[in-house]
Design a protein around this nucleic acid. Structure first.
Lengths: 192, 192
DNA sequence: CGTTTGCTTGAATTCTGTCAAAGCAGGTGG
DNA sequence: CCACCTGCTTTGACAGAATTCAAGCAAACG
């Protein structure tokens, strides 16, 4: 229980027994099934979810009904609508499960308390978000500077599990492409 | 001196006199001229720069010599190659000044010390990076889900000063477009 | 005043999206 | 066990959009 979360935490910020007990008291476990919503656009996002097991995605839906995937989250990643979480404004993203999943949930209230009471928690959060920030900057860099072929091969190298576990039309959406275009890129890469 | 930095800090995390003195002891001021480098690809990034005055950009250069702007930083923003800064690996980004600028510089050593000694500094950094993370997520969302017209008008609304102060071929680079394409988008938007 | 820099425009080319259809599993119910 | 869905991927033809290359023009600068 909370195994991966503890591992993620402890490898960045080594934890004493007592501090872990304090933190654990603010966590809760949630299981959701494939295709089930964790958050719907318009609701206020009250939790950050850390993925113990499974796979989720966050995405927007345009007026014409088209979906655009903003993020995937597999084991060891967190997912949330951070803006809604911090401001309590209505969420602009939807989040649902791509696979049956197990999540460690941290509410805004719990997070605020932990930030006051536990320097380790504050350090962990800082490191986690800094890592996420760097990853987003890399993604943007790839988007504006590389060809589609190079972006896709880079994605495979960086996140092989995502490419294996997630349907390709979702990868296309994540890259801002149509499924047809991604299919053609893959053919070009596999040597006609 | 350090006015904007103090303001940015104090509005997020109110500071006592003594704590500000502690922090101020770790800051230094740097002035750089337009077109001057703050960081070159391959060097290790030893500072995070907070912009007191002026405008900078970070960008990559491809083998063919084409530049791709990853970020702009105006007054109140920070800029750095965070990955290089944290790992001491060679930087993958270049940073230079678009206007004559004044910067508040924080070295890695100073930042580490402050993170240990000042809970307020840790809180400030967490809030700053969280805000930057959310901004990047918005940018990615716009990139994969909106038309070029909507992306450009969104940019004008969100960062009017950037669009006014930065040459348009740099805006085009930032959006991942050629200058010609951006010029045509602007004509379409101004009603032929 | 000449040069540089940035923005615009045009025509040809290349790439991507759209629409329609077909192929290909995996899963379900009969 | 098989036939039939259903969801996903691939393919083709065509229309639309962006890039490329070339040229022209205006403003800024030394």
């Amino acid at each position: 229980m909370y195994d991966r979360y503890f591992e993620s935490f402890n490898k960045r910020v080594p934890l004493s027994e007592s501090e872990w007990e304090l933190i654990k008291g603010h966590l809760s476990l949630k299981k959701i099934r494939k295709k089930q919503y964790l958050l719907q656009e318009g609701d206020v996002c009250k939790y950050v979810a850390f993925v113990e097991k499974g796979a989720l995605r966050s995405y927007t839906v345009n007026e014409d009904g088209s979906e655009h995937i903003v993020q995937f989250a597999l084991e060891g990643w967190f997912i949330s609508d951070m803006y809604s979480y911090l401001t309590t404004e209505p969420a602009t993203y939807n989040i649902d499960a791509i696979e049956d999943s197990e999540l460690v949930m941290i509410s805004r209230e719990s997070s605020d308390e932990l930030l006051e009471q536990s320097p380790s928690y504050k350090s962990y959060l800082l490191q986690l978000i800094t890592g996420a920030y760097i990853a987003l900057q890399k993604r943007i860099t790839a988007t504006i500077s590389l060809s589609l072929e190079d972006r896709y091969t880079g994605l495979i190298k960086t996140y092989p599990d995502i490419v294996q576990r997630v349907p390709q039309h979702m990868i296309a959406s994540y890259m801002g492409l149509t499924p047809e275009t991604l299919s053609r890129i893959r053919r070009r890469l596999s040597g006609n």
